[in-house]
Nucleic acid binder design. Sequence first.
DNA 1: CGGTCGATTCGCT
DNA 2: GCGAATCGACCGT
Length: 177
Amino acid sequence: MEEEFFRRDSKAVAKDLLGTRIRIEGLEAEITETEAYMEDDPASHAHGGKTERTRIMYESTGRIYVYLCYGIHHLLNITTNPDSAGCVLIRAAKPLEGLEKMRQRRDIEDETNLLNGPGKLCEAFGVDKDLNGSSYRSLGLEKSRSPKYETSGRIGISKAQDRQLRFYVPGSKYLSR
DNA sequence: CGGTCGATTCGCT
DNA sequence: GCGAATCGACCGT
């Protein structure tokens, strides 16, 4: 996967990341759900202009943006086209390898509950702010298939919930809520 | 420098 | 279904 893959509209990248495998330190999963963000979006951190935190979305392509949500959960994003300060949030995935390590970190057995949410996914993979600013290459991304997908309004945000910016594999057992 | 609030998750009712 | 947990970015004073 090349950097040019990310130098596109965040909606296109969000769609194409479905069916992509992510691999970190022996743990592997296939992405089942993503969400697109862009500057022209009241729910995006980038909405309202460039700050120290959002600088990465304005100035980079294919870089990892991790942020701490509610002081508890880390959320994993990849920056896309900087012209629109875009990024894609990885929301859910199907576990493929390293399930025992994921269970250990998540303190739960059910495999459908290991990665079915952006905070859960980061906990299982051990993702935290140390990854912030790194290249997408740290995620070992590998497109394994191009599944059918659907879009929906977004989950868990307070603004512009109706925008069709959530992308997911319909029928997957590994989706958030 | 204090107040507010959030792209979530979990546990309890 | 509802509320708490808990940190830091951001904004107004």
